[in-house]
Design a protein around this nucleic acid. Structure first.
Length: 359
DNA sequence: TACCCGTGGAG
DNA sequence: TCTCCAAGGGT
């Protein structure tokens, strides 16, 4: 491993000129931002793009201005506000964390990496990020950006995730004691805007000269990663029922696992290599009625590790729906439901078919 | 350790 | 259409 002449000062100087202005940020060299705002943004940004996060961040901060406000909210309200952002365990842990901070820490976030790391939903990355950005501690922040920057700067050719520990050690050798928060954001900004996964802009990089990968011309090939396995297809049948008062039947999913705690349109299990016939699907129907009919087309959705194809069976009741079947919700009130994107697709598909004169 | 866990944009 | 992947954490 050749010693790098990369310096934190060179990167901070670049950051002073190129820092992106983001809603949760204070300007370079400025006062530290509110720890609650930093934590909220960091949790939302886990595996999620800045563009997707911004509107959610603004709504959360407006609705719950402090961690104690968030702690006092019902979990369903938090899940409804999070709906569409994905990885819903983040929302459940966000709420859990807020309650711990409010109840056990007097509404004040711990200011150390270890203290933060002990909270729900805060792992190694987020603990370091909040400690550095909100509290100015010289913690080494390692996210996907930092891994990529370090892999190139030091020409680490071992593939991820095997190289994770090495990349973290290398990152730690560069972390400065001063301006820790600015530096943490600077490395990530460098990765997001200059040292990008494809076609990095080495000419504008403050670390071009010391970059080992750039000098070898292999920056496009790093970091190496192991091949990902193909996604299988799972299939299921969803049941769209409207009762005699114009309400649709929804349910709350179990509070752990896929889409945990979120609202769903009832369905059969989702099975790999399954072809659902009506006879196979109907035993899973949430209400017993005659006259189920299939809607044309399929609802397609892709999750992290499988593709889903959902057929939809629909039926109409002539009376108010049975209360034990689930929750009967007026179609006009769907906006207030914790419906993940997949379920919004199902609702849209069903409503669209109801308006479509072809069938 | 390896797997589970969403979504949308880019190329 | 398809693959990659984005400020990861939990188990």
């Amino acid at each position: 491993m050749p010693p790098s002449r990369a310096s934190a000062d060179a990167l901070l100087s670049w950051y002073d000129r190129h820092a992106r202005r983001l809603p949760w940020r204070t300007p370079p060299g400025g006062p530290a931002p509110d720890p609650y705002a930093v934590w909220l943004s960091e949790v939302m940004l886990q595996q999620t793009t800045v563009a997707a996060v911004i509107p959610y961040y603004e709504r959360f901060l407006s609705r719950w201005p402090t961690v104690s406000d968030l702690a006092a909210a019902p979990q369903d309200d938090v899940l409804t506000e999070w709906a569409g952002l994905g990885y819903y365990a983040r929302a459940r842990n966000l709420h859990k964390c807020a309650k711990v901070v409010a109840d056990e820490h007097g509404g004040v976030f711990p200011d150390t990496e270890d203290g933060l790391r002990a909270l729900p939903g805060i792992g190694a990355y987020t603990a370091a990020a909040v400690a550095a950005i909100a509290f100015g501690q010289p913690a080494t922040v390692v996210d996907g950006n930092v891994e990529r920057v370090m892999a190139r700067l030091f020409a680490v050719t071992e593939p991820l995730p095997d190289s994770k520990a090495d990349l973290k050690r290398l990152a730690a050798t560069l972390t400065p004691r001063k301006r820790a928060g600015d530096y943490a954001q600077a490395v990530m900004d460098l990765g997001a805007t200059v040292c990008t996964p494809r076609s990095p802009s080495c000419l504008g990089c403050p670390w071009q000269e010391p970059c080992a990968a750039q000098s070898e011309g292999i920056q496009d090939q790093l970091p190496k990663k192991r091949r990902k396995t193909a996604k299988p297809v799972r299939r299921g049948v969803a049941f769209w029922v409207i009762d005699g008062t114009g309400r649709a039947l929804l349910r709350k999913r179990p509070d752990s696992g896929l889409l945990g705690g979120m609202t769903e349109v009832p369905s059969t299990p989702w099975q790999e290599d399954a072809t659902w016939t009506p006879d196979a699907a109907l035993p899973h129907a949430p209400v017993t009625v005659e006259g189920w009919r299939p809607l044309p087309g399929l609802v397609r959705h892709t999750f992290t590790h499988f593709h889903l194809e959902l057929a939809v069976l629909t039926a109409a009741l002539s009376h108010p729906g049975p209360e034990d079947a689930g929750r009967w919700v007026d179609v006009a009130d769907m906006g207030g439901e914790a419906l993940p994107t997949l379920m919004r697709k199902v609702v849209k598909h069903a409503l669209q078919a109801a308006l479509d004169p072809h069938h």
